[in-house]
């Protein structure tokens, strides 16, 4: 009887050890979450969309694993810890990628802005030297006013760049470039009309 009591107590101790010693990896969870938040803060949702999505998926999988283990009698958080550590490492790697991508987007926006400005300046120069001959004066005035509208849009490109909206700035700049090129073509047509 005495032995049976001893065995029961020992059994309970073993069960207690197995169930309570394996604590949830809260620190690792917090670290993984913080690493993902840092990616978001670094504009990962714009410049590393796919990677951020994968990080969130991996975090979710790790949290599912923690959750599954927490319901078990014999908890083993080793795999979850590995998963969380990987999320953290991956997040840090993704965060490190972002500055280069931002730089790349910024350069693309600046290039597009320069192209738009060049197209605008070309149209303006053409207009300035266009002969205001028969049948063109009013057209030229209209085109000058069109260019004034484009100038306002060019300011918006700069505003977008200042606000670090590089993709938006690039799209607007390229649209301005197209419109400026169209105006330049109209000016050339007006010049040709005078020459006839």
């Amino acid at each position: 009887m005495k032995n049976l009591m001893k065995l029961s107590v020992l059994g309970l101790v073993v069960v207690f050890l197995f169930t309570s010693c394996a604590k949830q990896p809260t620190q690792q969870i917090d670290e993984a979450k913080a690493a993902i938040a840092a990616v978001e803060a670094a504009k990962g949702n714009i410049y590393a969309k796919d990677e951020l999505k994968k990080l969130n998926d991996d975090l979710q999988a790790a949290l599912d694993e923690v959750n599954a283990q927490s319901k078990k009698l014999f908890k083993k958080y080793g795999k979850a810890k590995e998963m969380l550590a990987k999320v953290k490492t991956d997040a840090e790697a993704v965060k490190a990628l972002i500055p280069a991508r931002i730089e790349e987007a910024k350069n693309a926006a600046l290039t597009a802005q320069n192209e738009a400005k060049a197209a605008f300046d070309e149209a303006k120069a053409l207009l300035d030297k266009a002969p205001k001959g028969k049948g063109t004066k009013a057209d030229i005035e209209a085109m000058k006013a069109d260019l004034a509208g484009l100038e306002a849009q060019l300011t918006e490109v700069q505003t977008a760049i200042d606000g670090e909206d590089y993709f938006g700035a690039k799209d607007k700049a390229l649209s301005i470039k197209d419109k400026a090129a169209a105006i330049a073509e109209q000016v050339k047509a007006a010049i040709a009309k005078v020459k006839k």
């Binding site: 009013a138 057209d139 005035e141 209209a142 000058k144 006013a145 069109d146 260019l147 004034a148 509208g149 484009l150 306002a152 849009q153 607007k172 649209s175 301005i176 419109k179």
Partner: peptide, 14 residues
């Protein structure tokens, strides 16, 4: 006076 409203129209075009 063809300058009227051209600015707005050019912006809309963009």
């Amino acid at each position: 006076q063809r300058t009227l409203s051209r600015k707005q129209l050019a912006q809309a075009d963009v």
